[in-house]
């Protein structure tokens, strides 16, 4: 590579909603790819039989499993909401600095709302089931 001048490192810049959400899209994408392991094990255990299924279910119900599931839910809804934001950009809309910040805020609100809603329904707090 030689001694070429490099642009300043990432730490030099003040984190902004645009840059933070951008790297978060990557992190959540990688996390979701890793999280598919649990989904695959769940399906294969269900195909295997009641004992294997109960073992995977026991892991899901443990505090480690619950923590992973919460992270996975949040990552899923964030990646989904921000993915839609990316598709809107791909269509050519919403590039003004103010619009980018607003859509970032909306993304966070949508992701948090869907995550909260899923957990309230999943834990039976709303007294309803799907």
């Amino acid at each position: 590579m030689g001694k070429r001048p490099l642009s300043p490192h990432l730490q030099i810049y003040r984190p902004q909603i645009t840059s933070v959400l951008s790297i978060l899209h990557r992190f959540t994408g990688i996390a979701l790819a890793l999280g598919t392991l649990h989904l695959v094990f769940w399906i294969l255990a269900a195909a295997q039989g009641p004992e294997a299924f109960a073992a995977v279910q026991a892991f899901s119900d443990s505090w480690v499993g619950q923590l992973l599931m919460l992270g996975w839910t949040a990552a899923l809804f964030y990646h989904l909401a921000n993915g839609v934001r990316h598709l809107v950009w791909d269509a050519g809309f919403g590039f003004a600095p103010s619009q980018v910040s607003i859509s970032g805020g909306i993304t966070l609100i949508v992701a948090a709302t869907l995550t909260l809603l899923a957990w309230l329904i999943g834990t039976g707090q709303l007294g309803m089931s799907l």
């Binding site: 899923l76 989904l80 990316h86 598709l87 791909d90 899923a118």
Partner: peptide
Amino acid sequence: RVTAIALIPLTLWFAAGLLSVIGAEHGAA
């Protein structure tokens, strides 16, 4: 992009479906 668009309805359907069988017995799953 094409897979992303396809995954929007698929993911929402899956999340809702998973909530309906969460904590269910093997038979229900």
